[in-house]
Structure formats: structure tokens, C-alpha cells
Amino acid sequence: MTPVLTTDRLHLVAPNEKHVAAYTQFIASERAAALGWSLMPHEAWRNYAAVLGHQRLRGFGPFIAEARGNGRVLGIFGPWWPEGQAEPEIKWTIFSPSDEGRGFATEAAHACLTDAFSRLGWSTAVSYITEENARSAAVATRLGAVHDGHWTTPRGTIVRVFRHAAPTGSAG
């Protein structure tokens, strides 16, 4: 079973059917469009179903971050390695602009990295970040990742590869 990862401000939990509304609302947002998403509502639902399926196919999958106080959904974070993707990735996506700039992505991604290198036994991890996403590149840098070339996604997008080192104190 997927554990709950607890940080100072967040619970990172396995995604389930309760989170689909927050996810599909994000996909429909201007923020998601700016990040390259363009899905119809029914496609967004199916995309979330595919996120849930990742857990069943790989034995691991991303976490939903809930605020510790009130359970509010802040975003989706963590291990992601669908078919067609070159390497295992640590992802981070904050759903609302109002939750940016508060360190949530760094806090959640750090917990996910620690979990991936220890519980999941990963020996390497990358994050794929588009050239224009400076905010996300800054998160990667804060996490200690280094720019390590480029990768062309199956959709044809050229992204920067940021490679993570095992977090201090993890078993990886």
C-alpha cells in the first residue's frame, strides 16, 4: 500500500476518487492551459483515471498533497514513469496560482524524492521541465538537481532534464 508522507504542512496521500474534482478543475484552468494542457472535461477525467492506473501498473504513483489543517487539495507530486517516458521522474504540479511561491512544491517534492530513493529503491530520478518554466526550474535547483541535457517527449516537446541526487539521509 502507498504510505502517507507527512511534511510540515502537507499530507501526501495516494490519489483516489475523492480528488478527481480538484484534478479536473485544475486541468480546465487557465493555469493548466499555460502549462500546455488542453483536454476536454471527459478527457480530463480519463487522464485522472490513467493517473490512478499508474499505481496499479507500476506499483507506485504520484501523491495528492492535502493541507494538513483542512485537507484542501494543493496539487499532485511524486513518482511518474508512464510507458514511453525515458526515465523515472519526480513531478510537481501546484493546482492554484494562489498556492505558488509558498514553498509547497519544494516541500512536497523533497518528501517524494526521499521516498523514491528509499522505499521505492530508485537509483536515479529526473524532472522534465520546459524551457519557459523558470519557476519549476528554480524548484529543481532548490532540491539540488542539476541540468543534465534535454529529452524530447512523445508529444514532441523538448524539455530540460534535471537530475536529482539521492537526498541526504536516504538509503538510495
Binding site: 476518487e17 478527481v20 485522472y48 490512478l52 508512464p82 510507458e83
Partner: peptide, 13 residues
């Protein structure tokens, strides 16, 4: 791959 993965999540939801 997305469609195949969605088969699994569809059952969950």
C-alpha cells in the same frame, strides 16, 4: 498507454 492506464483507474472510480 494513457488509455490502457485509464482502464485501471476507471475501475477504481
Amino acid at each position: 498507454a494513457e488509455q490502457f492506464s485509464s482502464f485501471f483507474g476507471h475501475w477504481v472510480m
